[in-house]
Amino acid sequence: MNTSPFVPSPHLQARILAEALPHLIQYDEQTVIIKFGGHAMGDAALADAFAKDVVYLKQSGVNPIVVHGGGPQIAAMLKKLEIKSDFVHGLRVTDKPTVEVVEMVLSGLINKDIVSAINRQGGKAVGISGKDANLMIASRITEMPDPQSNLMQAVDIGYVGDPVEVNPHIVDVISKSDIIPVIAPVAASRDGETLNINADSFASALAARMKAKRLLLLTDVAGVLDKSGELISQLTIEEARGLIKDGTISGGMIPKIEGCIEVVEAGVEAVVIIDGRVPHCVLLELFTAHGVGTLLGRARYKSKT
Rank of each mutant, 00 (worst) to 15 (best):
N2W: 09
N2F: 11
F6Q: 02
P8A: 03
P10R: 09
A14C: 10
R15A: 15
P22V: 12
I25F: 05
I25G: 01
Q26K: 15
Y27N: 12
Q30K: 15
T31Y: 12
H39Y: 09
H39N: 08
A40F: 04
M41P: 00
G42H: 03
D43R: 01
D43H: 05
A45P: 00
K52N: 12
K52R: 15
Q59W: 02
G61I: 04
N63D: 06
G69K: 05
K80R: 11
L81S: 02
K84Q: 13
H89I: 08
H89M: 13
R92Y: 10
V99Q: 07
V99D: 05
G108M: 13
L109N: 12
N111G: 15
D113L: 13
S129V: 09
G130W: 02
D132P: 07
A133C: 12
S139H: 15
I141R: 00
T142F: 09
D146T: 11
D156H: 14
P163Y: 07
V166S: 04
N167D: 07
D172Y: 06
D172C: 03
D172I: 00
S175F: 02
K176A: 08
P181L: 06
P181S: 06
V182H: 01
I183P: 04
P185N: 05
V186N: 04
V186E: 03
A187Q: 06
S189Y: 08
R190H: 13
R190Q: 14
N196I: 03
N196T: 04
N198C: 02
A205K: 13
L206D: 04
A207N: 05
A208Y: 05
A208P: 03
R209K: 15
R214K: 15
L215V: 03
D220Y: 02
D220C: 08
V221T: 14
V224I: 15
D226M: 12
Q234K: 12
A240E: 10
D246H: 08
G247N: 07
T248H: 09
M253G: 06
I254C: 05
K256N: 11
I257H: 06
G259V: 04
I261K: 05
E269G: 04
E269N: 08
V278I: 15
L284S: 11
F287E: 12
T288Q: 12
L296Q: 03
K304H: 07
